[in-house]
């Protein structure tokens, strides 16, 4: 009897203390969601299957999405997210293909403006019935335009490496073979 009463009292006292504390240390919103969404491309391209980047950020923080969910972000984003969220993630398996750009085959373009409407960054310029062009410095290589083009005049290509883009490769790990 005493035991039960004591336990009840103890529980009541501790509960009261925690209740007060929870008022005192209230956290309004999760700042992490904002930080994560700042990392995402923000194009709301929808390739991940979520309704836009902010939603995806929330899902990520809740752990309902894997850090490698974002195709345009690629390996770099996955690593950045893993770092931010403190999850163990081995990005070595992710194909880190070179960034691609969209290119319009001008012979085939009929000026339908479909790609133009679809492009999440307004990287395609042109007007109805006129040949469109891709502004490469705005193209994110998401490939959405390729899907909608009725004449298949759009293709993705890997831009050539020039002197400005060249980077030192990682040294070859040339540990001596059995001599």
């Amino acid at each position: 009897m005493i035991a039960i009463v004591m336990l009840a009292l103890l529980g009541f006292a501790l509960g009261l203390a925690l209740g007060v504390a929870s008022k005192r240390f209230k956290v309004e919103s999760d700042p992490l969601v904002e930080e994560v969404s700042a990392l995402l491309p923000g194009t709301n391209c929808g390739q991940c299957g979520f309704a836009g980047c902010p939603t995806a950020a929330e899902k990520l923080v809740k752990g309902e999405a894997s850090v490698d969910f974002c195709p345009p972000g690629g390996k770099a984003l996955a690593e950045a997210l893993a770092e931010k969220l403190g999850v163990d993630f081995d990005a070595s398996g992710m194909a880190d293909g070179p960034p691609k750009l969209a290119r319009i085959n001008e012979a085939l373009c009929i000026g339908c403006v479909k790609c133009f409407r679809e492009c999440p960054t307004d990287a395609i310029v042109g007007a109805p019935k006129q040949i469109h062009a891709v502004m490469w410095n705005a193209c994110t290589g998401c490939g959405k335009c390729v899907d909608v083009c009725p004449t298949m005049c759009l293709e993705m290509f890997v831009p050539e490496t020039g002197l400005a883009q060249w980077r030192w490769p990682k040294p070859v790990e040339s540990v001596a073979k059995a001599a």
């Binding site: 491309p41 923000g42 194009t43 709301n44 972000g73 492009c119 999440p120 960054t121 307004d122 990287a123 410095n137 705005a138 994110t140």
Partner: peptide
């Protein structure tokens, strides 16, 4: 590039 993309997306 990501930031530029975000700005463009927002503009759009």
């Amino acid at each position: 590039k990501g930031e530029r993309t975000r700005a463009l997306a927002q503009a759009r």
